[in-house]
C-alpha cells in the first residue's frame, strides 16, 4: 500500500450569502448559507492523480481552494503528509508542509500578473522561499524551468500578454514548479484552452509527473480529460462526493445513478444515430438543497427513503458510493460500453 499524501475527512465549507443586516431586519428574512462543500472525504496516495468531476457549481473548485488553503474549512480535517492543515493557524505552524503544495489555475489570462515579466513571475516563489540565493543562479533556474515546460529561457524577458493561452498555462506550471512542490492542485487547467493545446498541456503534466514524482489533485468537468489523466476519480454533486473509484472501475462499472447519467451524456462515435439519454434537469440551488439525497429530484431510482434520508458512503470494491439504491440492491445492471467513448 502506497503512502497516503493527502487525506480529507468530512470537509465542509459554507458561504454566508445573506443580504446586509439592515435588509434582513427590514424584510424579516433570515441568514442564507450556501453549502458549497458539505462533508467530502477522500485520500490521495503519493504519485497518483486523483480527479474530481461534476457539473458547474458542485463545489469541486471550492475543494481545490480548501486543500491549498485559499479558503478556511467550516468543518472537517485536511491532513497533508501527516500534518493537520485544517485552518489558517495550523497552516502557519506547518509552513514547510504548506510549501510542498502549489496550484495551477483555470484561466491562464488571469493567473499571471499582467505587469510583471515572466522571469519575475516564475522567480517569485524562489525568491520568497529563498530556495536559491543570488540573481544569476535564480536566472539560471528560471531558464531551466522554462525549458522544462517547453518554452525558451529567453522568454523570461517577455510580458505575459506576448504569449498564447497554452504558453501562459506553461508559464503557470513553471511558476508552480519553482516552489519545488510534491503536490499540485490543478483547478481545471485545460478548460480555457483549445482542444489541441489541451492535449499538449495534459501530456506535459504527465511527463512532469513521471519525471518529478508529483501527485496531482485534478479538478475538471471534462470526463474525457479525466479518464485520460487519472488513477482515481471522485464524482461530486451539490457539495457531496457521491462516488469515487479507480478510473477503470468508475468508467467501466459506474454505480451511482448520477455517475451513470454523466457517462451516458458523453458523445460516442459508435452510438451515433442512436438516441442518448441527456442529463435531465438542472442542478438544484445549493442554498436550498433537496432533502435527503440531494440527487433525488433527478434520479430515476429515487423512492421515499431517498427523499428523507441522506445516504452514507458505502465501501465497495475499488471505491465507495453514497446511494440507497446501491445499498438496497435495487440498482439495475450497467449497460456498459462507453469507456472507449471517453478517449
Amino acid at each position: 500500500m502506497a503512502e497516503t499524501m493527502l487525506k480529507v475527512e468530512g470537509l465542509k465549507r459554507y458561504f454566508d450569502v445573506s443580504p446586509p443586516w439592515l435588509n434582513r431586519v427590514l424584510d424579516g428574512s433570515g441568514r442564507r448559507v450556501v453549502h458549497a462543500v458539505d462533508g467530502v472525504s477522500f485520500s490521495i496516495e503519493r504519485g497518483e492523480t486523483f480527479s474530481l468531476v461534476g457539473e458547474s457549481g458542485c463545489g469541486k473548485s471550492t475543494v481545490a481552494r480548501l486543500v491549498v488553503g485559499l479558503y478556511d474549512p467550516s468543518g472537517g480535517q485536511i491532513t497533508f503528509e501527516g500534518a493537520d492543515l485544517s485552518g489558517a493557524a495550523a497552516r502557519r505552524k506547518h509552513g514547510d508542509k504548506q510549501s510542498r503544495m502549489q496550484m495551477i489555475f483555470q484561466d491562464p489570462y488571469a493567473s499571471l500578473n499582467p505587469r510583471w515579466r515572466v522571469g519575475r513571475i516564475i522567480a517569485e516563489p524562489i525568491r520568497f522561499k529563498k530556495l536559491i540565493q543570488g540573481g544569476d543562479k535564480i536566472k539560471a533556474r528560471v531558464g531551466e524551468l522554462l525549458s522544462l515546460v517547453g518554452l525558451s529561457p529567453a522568454d523570461a524577458d517577455k510580458f505575459p500578454h506576448e504569449f498564447s493561452g497554452g504558453q501562459r498555462q506553461r508559464i503557470s506550471i513553471a511558476r508552480a514548479l519553482a516552489g519545488q512542490p510534491e503536490f499540485l492542485v490543478c483547478d481545471e487547467p485545460t478548460s480555457a484552452l483549445d482542444v489541441s493545446v489541451q492535449a499538449q498541456i495534459l501530456n506535459l503534466m504527465a511527463e512532469l509527473q513521471a519525471e518529478l514524482g508529483l501527485t496531482y489533485l485534478f479538478i475538471s468537468h471534462n470526463l474525457a480529460v479525466v479518464h485520460h489523466v487519472s488513477d482515481k476519480v471522485g464524482v461530486m454533486y451539490l457539495g457531496r462526493l457521491v462516488e469515487w473509484a479507480e478510473t477503470r472501475t468508475l468508467f467501466g462499472r459506474p454505480l451511482h445513478p448520477y455517475t451513470r447519467m454523466l457517462l451516458d451524456a458523453i458523445p460516442d462515435l459508435d452510438m451515433s444515430g442512436r438516441s442518448r439519454t441527456p442529463v435531465a434537469g438542472e442542478v438544484p440551488s445549493p442554498i436550498n438543497p433537496p432533502s435527503g439525497c440531494s440527487f433525488h429530484p433527478r434520479c430515476p431510482l429515487a423512492n421515499e427513503r431517498c427523499k428523507r434520508e441522506v445516504p452514507q458512503s458505502l465501501t465497495v470494491p475499488g471505491g465507495a458510493v453514497a446511494c440507497h439504491a446501491v445499498q438496497e440492491g435495487r440498482l439495475p445492471p450497467w449497460h456498459g460500453g462507453t469507456v472507449a467513448a471517453a478517449e
Binding site: 488553503g69 489555475f105 493567473s111
Partner: peptide, 22 residues
C-alpha cells in the same frame, strides 16, 4: 479575486506584500 493574486497567496506571500507588489 483574480487568479494571480490567489497564486501569490498559494506561494505563501503575506497580505501586505501581496497588496503592495501585486
Amino acid at each position: 479575486n483574480k487568479e494571480y493574486v490567489q497564486a501569490a497567496r498559494v506561494i505563501g506571500l503575506p497580505s501586505v506584500l501581496i497588496m503592495i507588489r501585486h
